[in-house]
Lab assay of single mutants.
Amino acid sequence: TEKEKEVKRLAKERGLSPDQVRELAQRAGFSPDQAKQIADEFA
Results as ranks from 00 to 15, higher is better:
residue 39 A to H: 01
residue 35 A to F: 00
residue 25 A to Y: 00
residue 10 L to E: 15
residue 28 A to R: 07
residue 7 V to K: 03
residue 18 P to D: 05
residue 11 A to V: 01
residue 29 G to H: 01
residue 38 I to T: 01
residue 22 R to W: 11
residue 40 D to A: 10
residue 29 G to C: 01
residue 27 R to I: 13
residue 13 E to V: 09
residue 6 E to S: 06
residue 5 K to F: 09
residue 41 E to D: 14
residue 2 E to C: 12
residue 32 P to T: 06
residue 28 A to Q: 10
residue 18 P to E: 08
residue 20 Q to Y: 03
residue 6 E to Q: 10
residue 29 G to F: 00
residue 18 P to A: 12
residue 32 P to K: 07
residue 9 R to Q: 10
residue 43 A to T: 10
residue 27 R to W: 08
residue 9 R to A: 06
residue 2 E to Q: 12
residue 9 R to F: 03
residue 31 S to F: 04
residue 41 E to K: 06
residue 18 P to S: 09
residue 5 K to R: 13
residue 8 K to C: 10
residue 16 L to C: 07
residue 14 R to P: 04
residue 21 V to Q: 00
residue 24 L to K: 02
residue 15 G to D: 07
residue 39 A to L: 03
residue 28 A to V: 14
residue 7 V to Y: 03
residue 28 A to C: 13
residue 20 Q to L: 06
residue 17 S to I: 05
residue 29 G to K: 00
residue 38 I to V: 04
residue 27 R to P: 01
residue 16 L to T: 00
residue 14 R to A: 14
residue 13 E to H: 06
residue 26 Q to T: 13
residue 21 V to G: 00
residue 2 E to W: 13
residue 7 V to R: 02
residue 11 A to P: 04
residue 10 L to T: 14
residue 31 S to Q: 06
residue 24 L to C: 07
residue 17 S to M: 08
residue 22 R to Y: 15
residue 3 K to A: 13
residue 30 F to I: 05
residue 8 K to N: 05
residue 24 L to R: 02
residue 9 R to W: 02
residue 4 E to C: 11
residue 23 E to V: 06
residue 32 P to L: 05
residue 8 K to F: 03
residue 6 E to H: 10
residue 22 R to P: 04
residue 28 A to I: 14
residue 4 E to K: 15
residue 42 F to M: 11
residue 2 E to V: 11
residue 35 A to S: 07
residue 39 A to Y: 03
residue 39 A to D: 01
residue 12 K to T: 12
residue 10 L to V: 15
residue 6 E to T: 08
residue 13 E to W: 02
residue 6 E to A: 13
residue 16 L to Q: 02
residue 39 A to Q: 03
residue 20 Q to P: 00
residue 25 A to H: 01
residue 43 A to I: 12
residue 39 A to M: 06
residue 19 D to Y: 03
residue 29 G to N: 02
residue 36 K to S: 12
residue 21 V to N: 01
residue 13 E to G: 05
residue 33 D to R: 04
residue 43 A to H: 09
residue 37 Q to P: 00
residue 5 K to A: 14
residue 12 K to R: 12
residue 19 D to R: 10
residue 37 Q to D: 07
residue 40 D to N: 10
residue 25 A to G: 03
residue 32 P to I: 06
residue 15 G to Y: 04
residue 17 S to N: 14
residue 37 Q to V: 12
residue 38 I to G: 01
residue 22 R to N: 12
residue 19 D to I: 09
residue 3 K to H: 07
residue 26 Q to N: 04
residue 23 E to D: 12
residue 17 S to D: 11
residue 42 F to N: 03
residue 38 I to C: 03
residue 30 F to C: 03
residue 41 E to G: 06
residue 17 S to W: 06
residue 42 F to P: 02
residue 28 A to P: 00
residue 41 E to V: 04
residue 27 R to L: 15
residue 4 E to Q: 12
residue 3 K to F: 09
residue 16 L to F: 07
residue 14 R to S: 13
residue 34 Q to W: 06
residue 9 R to S: 06
